[in-house]
Design a protein around this nucleic acid. Sequence first.
DNA 1: GATTAGCACTCTATGATGACGAGTGCTAAC
DNA 2: GTTAGCACTCGTCATCATAGAGTGCTAATC
Lengths: 348, 348
Amino acid sequence: MRLDERKLRILRTIIDDYVMTATPIGSRTISKRSELGLSSATIRNEMSDLEEMGFLEQPHTSAGRVPSEKAYRFYVDTMMNAGALSEDEIAFMRSYFNARMTEAEEVVARTARLLSDLTDYTSMVMSPELNTVIVKHVQLVPVTPGRALAVIVTDAGLVRDSFIAVPSGCTATDLERLSNMVTARVKKMPLHEAVEALNRGAGEEMEEQRSCFTSVADAIAHDISREASRGVVLGGATNLLKHPEYLDFDKASSMLAILETKEQLYRILSKAAKMEFTVTIGSENELPEMQSSSVVTATYKISGKPVGSFGVIGPIRMDYAKVVTVLNQMGITLSAVLTGMLSPEDKK
Amino acid sequence: MRLDERKLRILRTIIDDYVMTATPIGSRTISKRSELGLSSATIRNEMSDLEEMGFLEQPHTSAGRVPSEKAYRFYVDTMMNAGALSEDEIAFMRSYFNARMTEAEEVVARTARLLSDLTDYTSMVMSPELNTVIVKHVQLVPVTPGRALAVIVTDAGLVRDSFIAVPSGCTATDLERLSNMVTARVKKMPLHEAVEALNRGAGEEMEEQRSCFTSVADAIAHDISREASRGVVLGGATNLLKHPEYLDFDKASSMLAILETKEQLYRILSKAAKMEFTVTIGSENELPEMQSSSVVTATYKISGKPVGSFGVIGPIRMDYAKVVTVLNQMGITLSAVLTGMLSPEDKK
DNA sequence: GATTAGCACTCTATGATGACGAGTGCTAAC
DNA sequence: GTTAGCACTCGTCATCATAGAGTGCTAATC
């Protein structure tokens, strides 16, 4: 059977309508709504065909029909035209990030909020991945006699810090000298290489600071490994409850549990970070608990280099066109904001 | 009417039972459960009295009875014996905080998790309040030519940092000098005084670094004001859904919305931080959305100085005795962990 | 040949009805 | 003061009938 122009228009109308109303669509509704000027009987025949082809499903005999996952997949792949946001909307998005923001974490949090507000779905944003980023400078700041703060500055201008223990005999001057030594050691290395370099052990040149040295190495390694659990920020988790598909108690509950632990989300976003866009519909998701939801993701960049991803989670009946449009614009805006914020002097 | 020993025992049995089962308790149940050896008819009379006194309520004529808010209040104030956790449980709690943790934020996150796991309610933990804490040292770390990281070290060993903009002409040495100047200026001041001192403007001694100086002041002020939104960590938000009182959709939804924004929680915890313990039952809560829930909070200390609070949120039908016991022990453990972590050499 | 009107059929949602059971309050007996 | 007994209340649950939405099929129409 061929999927001719008329069938396409009918399918699109059904999808659009169902995305809005979340109730099965009957032939009469389509007959009135679409501009085809066909009677409900004709539509019925077409819908019957579409069902046979796997694009529609009937919850039960006397209900209307509902788009299948295959229909959404088809819609996303070939029918959807992802428009652009209006000037006003883009301006609004920009204005959401004000100049006062100084930390990447803050930008990430705002992004999550904005995404969930704009789409009415739940959003998730992975904070920038720094492994590919290059160490520029390490500074040890004395805190109490026994401890110091290790600040690791990277080329993109992002910063990681963590506490380390130092021998209590260490003076501020010692730390200063140690900072310089460590910096000399790891300068221009990507983070993970820097860890290795430090683990390789202290050279003879810093015999007496050996224990400090290993502390720094440990701290960095620890910091990187911890990233998994802290790297995802959620927005609008309660938006889930706005959609009738989550009225089912167990569904809502298991979904919220997944959102809460964040580890799964981190996995999803990490995987998605490899592609500019991903749309994962229902059973295409790996997690069983997510197979009645859909996930759309996009990536963002700093100075042209992809460093993280973000996305929304919602029911399979999702307004994919709108979501893709918003995510697309958000990727552009977010990349610009981060690039501008972190390296104001080298906007390319 | 007097509240004699027998009435007390009956009331306690009803509360205990209701906390477990969440279903109204009938006279027959009590007659069997309690060791008083009384018939259901007698219990009925007593329950009728208790209802007249305002301790019990009937959802409808032919249901059992349910403790009123007044009953819980009375229970918490006079009947409850907050036991202690067993050695094993305390050991478990301790083991949850391992030695590798270096940042207060991480301890806070673990605490939230642990609290919600132990109680089955939703927990919230406010991260340490540093306003009362004294500035010890300010260090500026160069990041990119145009910006630096201002690290503020306090006497308790806690650290705040934020980015600031600096004139691009500034060299590392300039920053080093500036660090020393700023430190000299604000040393031994509480954070908010330090802000004022910095706002008062640069002295003549640092004419040329004036703009840096105000940047630092701004950054600190900004940092403090931002505390409200980032200072609360949630644990086990989905635990809410475990309790039948939140089966009502609107209730669950509005509650989750409150949890999500966190600002209200910050307000609650700030207020509660003034008292060692608080128990707020149902309509005693200020927020209308929370009047069908209860909140129990406690505080924690660093080196004997109260610096923050934490608590749980659950249905009015809460196991107050257990919650208070857990919070109490958690306060002790958390204080010890933080004190030990941040100033290992001055455990008092 | 495509389209449509008409109609029988299916299935859900809704609301009414009645039996059941849990629990109470009261009275009279112990 | 306590308890057995009983009538009464009220919510829950299952049953049943009805209305309405939607379909598939057939026959008539364009």
